[in-house]
């Protein structure tokens, strides 16, 4: 027994490495790879009567996915995810910069404080945003009382509230990679730039920004991908005009019972995702 375990541990044979990795790889194959493969296949199958699936190949689900009314939803999702990503970048970059350069002794605390909202159940945060943004909600009553507005603003169930919600949930995905790349930036480069007479702005645009570009790309991709698949934010903070692909997919699987069409939509989402990751891989090695 001891000899066998030692063989497993020491890794002198390739087989021992595979033996240690096998459970995890099998697990991922069973509960991740095969389900996704199954989903991709389902997208090419035909819908039978009463929500059943007929095993005959077809492209109709995909052609339906790019019909104008569905294409509109897809493009809207892309737009929302894009705007959210840019917003997160704009809001998150100064925060990451502060964490990395200015926070000093408070850094640990600030980093931990960044993670607490992230680990809070997103449902609960959505509920809070509903209280804040509602027609008779907190923000409106504050604004009314202060006399800035005469009538309550329509904040909830608008594109604004959806983008705000998405940005709220996914901003840690932007800040952490940015922070990581700023952390790795050698401080001497900045000093050299200052010594050579460059001002702060010039140093920022010529040295800091180019060197942390991989972090920017990573952050953008890590924010963009989950935004594309989100359906809870639009469900609770949005209205009929902010229907996103995630809502459509959820609807096909749980309400309309048109699984092949839902699977085709998910496949389109996956293709976009793989394209994004491929792009990320291209940028990553420069780090």
């Amino acid at each position: 027994m001891d000899a066998w375990l030692s063989w497993l541990i020491c890794g002198r044979s390739r087989k021992s490495s595979y033996a240690l990795l096998a459970p995890a790889v099998l697990w991922l194959a069973l509960f991740l790879i095969i389900p996704v493969a199954c989903l991709l296949e389902l997208g090419f199958l035909r819908l039978g009567p009463y929500g059943t699936v007929v095993f005959s190949l077809t492209l109709s689900n995909f052609s339906r996915a790019i019909e104008p009314r569905y294409l509109e939803i897809l493009l809207r999702t892309l737009g929302y995810a894009g705007i959210t990503t840019l917003l997160c970048l704009a809001l998150g970059f100064p925060a990451a910069y502060y964490l990395s350069f200015r926070a000093g002794r408070r850094r640990e605390l600030c980093l931990a404080a960044l993670m607490i909202p992230f680990w809070t159940s997103c449902l609960v945060a959505l509920y809070s945003w509903m209280i804040i943004l509602g027609r008779e909600g907190l923000l409106n009553s504050l604004l009314l009382r202060s006399g800035l507005i005469a009538h309550p603003l329509r904040l909830l169930n608008t594109p604004f509230s959806v983008v705000l919600g998405l940005a709220y949930f996914y901003i840690p995905f932007m800040v952490l990679p940015l922070y990581g790349s700023l952390e790795k930036l050698p401080r001497q480069y900045l000093e050299a730039s200052y010594d050579l007479g460059a001002g702060r702005a010039r140093t920022f645009f010529k040295v800091t920004l180019p060197l942390c570009l991989p972090g920017v790309v990573a952050g953008c991709i890590l924010t963009f991908i989950p935004c594309m698949g989100d359906f809870l934010t639009a469900e609770f903070l949005g209205g009929p005009r902010t229907y996103l692909v995630g809502n459509l997919i959820q609807n096909q699987f749980l309400m309309a019972q048109d699984w092949p069409f839902g699977a085709a939509l998910t496949s389109v989402l996956l293709i976009l995702l793989v394209a994004g990751l491929y792009f990320y891989q291209r940028v990553e090695p420069q780090r």
Binding site: L32, P226, G229, L277
Partner: peptide, 21 residues
């Protein structure tokens, strides 16, 4: 790389994938 795939995958994809499997 495989071990980090679940982090990259939108959860809805895993959800509907597992459901269909």
């Amino acid at each position: 790389a495989l071990l980090s795939v679940p982090l990259m995958m939108p959860e809805i994809v895993m959800g509907v994938g597992l459901l269909s499997l």
